Simulated assay, not measured.
Amino acid sequence: MSYSEDTIKKMLPKTFLRKHVAHEIYVTITYFKQLVPIMDKYVYNDGTTKDLMSLTGTIPVMINDKTYNIPVCLWIEESYPQTAPICYVRPTREMMILRGEYISSNGEIQLPYLEEWKNGECDLVSLLQVMAATFGDFPPVCMQPHPEPEQDSCWLQFQRQAEVLSKADGSSYLSLPRGDGQPFQQENETNC
Rank of each mutant, 00 (worst) to 15 (best):
I103S: 03
R90L: 14
V72S: 06
N106K: 12
Y88K: 08
C192D: 00
D51I: 08
C154H: 02
A168D: 01
F32N: 01
N64D: 15
Q129G: 11
T134N: 08
S126P: 02
T48A: 11
W75N: 08
E78C: 09
T134P: 04
R93Y: 06
T15H: 07
M39P: 03
V36R: 10
S4H: 08
G181F: 03
D6T: 15
W75P: 02
E187N: 00
L35V: 07
T58S: 15
K118F: 02
I29A: 05
M53E: 10
D152I: 00
D152N: 08
E116F: 06
E5R: 14
V164E: 00
L12C: 14
Q151P: 06
N64V: 07
Q110V: 12
G120P: 06
M1W: 08
P139R: 05
P145S: 07
G120R: 04
Y31Q: 12
S175V: 00
D123K: 04
T190E: 03
N64A: 13
E187I: 05
Y88I: 07
Q110E: 14
F184V: 09
C87H: 04
Q185L: 08
G120K: 05
T67F: 12
Q151T: 06
T67Y: 10
I76Q: 03
I59N: 06
M143E: 11
I29M: 07
V72W: 06
Y3H: 13
S126E: 10
E189F: 14
L124D: 05
F32Q: 03
L156D: 13
L124W: 04
S153M: 02
L114Y: 01
L128F: 15
K14E: 15
W117D: 02
D40V: 08
K66N: 15
P71R: 12
P37R: 09
T7H: 12
I97R: 04
Y68F: 15
Q82V: 10
S172H: 00
D46L: 08
A162P: 04
I76V: 14
Y3G: 05
E77D: 15
P71I: 13
T28M: 03
G179F: 03
D169A: 09
Y31L: 13
A132K: 05
G100N: 05
Q185K: 06
P81T: 07
P112S: 09
N64I: 04
L74S: 09
P91H: 08
G136H: 12
H23M: 10
P177K: 05
R160K: 14
Q159T: 05
F16H: 10
S153W: 01
K33P: 04
E163D: 04
Y88V: 01
I70P: 02
M1V: 12
I59A: 08
P91N: 03
F158P: 02
H146C: 12
T67S: 10
